[in-house]
C-alpha cells in the first residue's frame, strides 16, 4: 500500500508541476488542482496508513490512540480542502478578469513572441 500511495502522490505532483509551469491560465488552474490533491494526500499520509480505524471514539472505555487513525492530519486536510476551493475560485476570477482586460489567456497578460 505504501508504495502505491507514494507513487500516486509523486505522479499527481509531477503532473501538477508540469501544468503550473505552462503559459496558459487554464493549465495553471488545473495544475493547482492536481498539486493540491498531491499535497493534501502528502499531509494526510504523515498520519500513516490505517485501515478500518476511523477516528470515531464511540466506545468510552476504549480511548487508546492505537485503535484509531491519526485525527490531526485529517483535520488539517479537511480545512485545506475547503480553503483550496476558495483559492481556486479566486484564481479563476482573477484569470477571467485578466483575460477580459488583456484579451489573452496567457498568464502574463500578453502573448510572447515565440508563442507556445
Amino acid at each position: 500500500m505504501e508504495i502505491i500511495l507514494a507513487l500516486a502522490i509523486g505522479i499527481l505532483f509531477a503532473s501538477g508541476v508540469w501544468l503550473v509551469l505552462r503559459p496558459r491560465s487554464f493549465q495553471v488552474i488545473t495544475g493547482l488542482l492536481l498539486l493540491s490533491y498531491a499535497v493534501n494526500l502528502f499531509i494526510f499520509i504523515t498520519g500513516r496508513i490505517s485501515l478500518n480505524k476511523p477516528p470515531l471514539t464511540l466506545d468510552e472505555t476504549a480511548l487508546d490512540p492505537a485503535l484509531y487513525a491519526d485525527p490531526l492530519p485529517q483535520a488539517l486536510v479537511l480545512t485545506a480542502i475547503v480553503i483550496g476551493f476558495a483559492t481556486t475560485a479566486l484564481y479563476l476570477v482573477v484569470l477571467l478578469g485578466s483575460r477580459g482586460l488583456t484579451g489573452t489567456d496567457h498568464v502574463d497578460g500578453k502573448e510572447k513572441e515565440t508563442d507556445e
Binding site: 505504501e2 508504495i3 500511495l5 507514494a6 507513487l7 502522490i9 509523486g10 505522479i11 505532483f13 509531477a14 503532473s15 508541476v17 508540469w18 509551469l21 505552462r22 498531491a38 502528502f42 499520509i45 504523515t46 500513516r48 496508513i49
Partner: peptide, 20 residues
C-alpha cells in the same frame, strides 16, 4: 519543465515513501 516535473515528483514520492 518535464525534467523538473518528473524530478519533483520523484523527490516527493521518495519522501512520502520514507515517511510511510
Amino acid at each position: 519543465d518535464l525534467l523538473i516535473a518528473i524530478s519533483s515528483g520523484v523527490i516527493l514520492s521518495v519522501v512520502s515513501y520514507l515517511i510511510l
